[in-house]
């Protein structure tokens, strides 16, 4: 029973991190119609910003917002100087919809190379604010730890803040309108270009949190070609697709479904399935509901 709860909580924690990554991919997809494979590179760079902040300021709770702001500014920069140009130049022809996506793969390589130029290829370490040693209940030591609990709570708080931003503020309404119907948004006086950049910035901030948490949720080691960030990219993308790619709620559900199922597969089937499990889940979901869990048929056409 305790083992079951343990598995569930681990799954929700990693699912929550994955949901943050999925949110950042959905935000970019909705505003620019691009699957941004550089998202993990942006998260990586932001996490290095966070690492610098920890080294210099000795506090995880200062480093987290530093990483978020750094990630937001970098994402906004990429949107303004890179994506706008790219989308404009590849707006017609057979490769129009593919070119920007391939370009994000190139961007991922560039960001990784820049990171290893600045910080070197060796591992650096970020230590979380709490211990990652599991709770001990009735003589049994679990994997679920105080740090994981803290990550879980932080992710929930961030999601609540995001949903308030999107549902209750004018900025959120502008972001949604610009995503669903850019022309109507423009005719309503919304500066769609600016809103698009803000959408990227928000995605950058969410990705930064995902990167920071993914790092401390594992063993805290960070390197330019870290496997943790590849996992983050793949699982974030899969969670976004499971959620229908259009919906932030879908991204959260997708992340949780993925995190919990992977956690159960690792615990009860085989611990060597870590890499395959997300893909199996993706295939199963797409076979049963090709439009994703939340995605509507109409949304796919738009």
């Amino acid at each position: 029973m305790i083992q079951l709860l343990n598995t569930l909580l681990i799954g929700i924690t990693s699912g929550g991190i994955c949901a943050l990554m999925a949110i950042s991919m959905v935000l970019v997809w909705r505003s620019t119609r691009v699957i941004n494979f550089a998202q993990s590179g942006m998260a990586l760079l932001s996490t290095y910003f966070g690492y610098e902040a920890i080294v210099n300021l000795k506090s995880f709770w200062i480093a987290l917002p530093v990483a978020m702001i750094g990630g937001a500014l970098f994402a906004a920069f990429i949107e303004v100087v890179f994506m706008r140009l790219l989308v404009k130049h590849s707006s017609s022809g057979p490769i129009a919809s593919v070119a920007p996506i391939i370009a994000t793969l190139g961007l991922l390589g560039i960001i990784r190379a820049i990171v290893s130029m600045i910080w070197g290829g060796q591992d650096v370490r970020i230590v979380g604010p709490l211990s990652n040693d599991g709770f001990t209940i009735g003589g049994e030591t679990l994997v679920f730890s105080p740090l994981k609990l803290l990550i879980l709570i932080s992710v929930i708080v961030l999601m609540l803040l995001l949903s308030i931003l999107f549902q209750k503020t004018n900025l959120g309404l502008s972001l949604r309108a610009a995503a669903y119907a850019p022309e109507i948004a423009r005719l309503s006086g919304i500066k769609v270009d600016l809103v698009r950049t803000l959408g990227w910035a928000l995605a950058g901030a969410a990705g930064a949190v995902a990167g920071m948490f993914q790092t401390i949720n594992a063993n805290g080691y960070l390197s330019p070609y870290s496997i943790e960030f590849s996992i983050l990219l793949v699982s974030g993308f899969i969670a976004a697709v499971i959620g229908g790619l259009e919906s932030l709620v879908g991204a959260v559900i997708g992340g949780l479904v993925l995190g919990v199922s992977v956690s159960f597969i690792l615990m009860y089937v085989s611990s060597s399935l870590g890499f395959i499990a997300p893909f199996i889940i993706l295939l199963i979901v797409l076979f049963i509901r090709p439009q994703g869990i939340i995605g509507a048929k109409a949304a796919r056409r738009a």
């Binding site: 004018n170 502008s174 949604r176 309108a177 309503s188 919304i190 109409a298």
Partner: peptide, 20 residues
Amino acid sequence: SVIPQLTVKENLELGAIWRR
């Protein structure tokens, strides 16, 4: 020209956001 995913109130408010 309405945004189907938004509520009626949100669709209407959209027109006045810029006035802050």
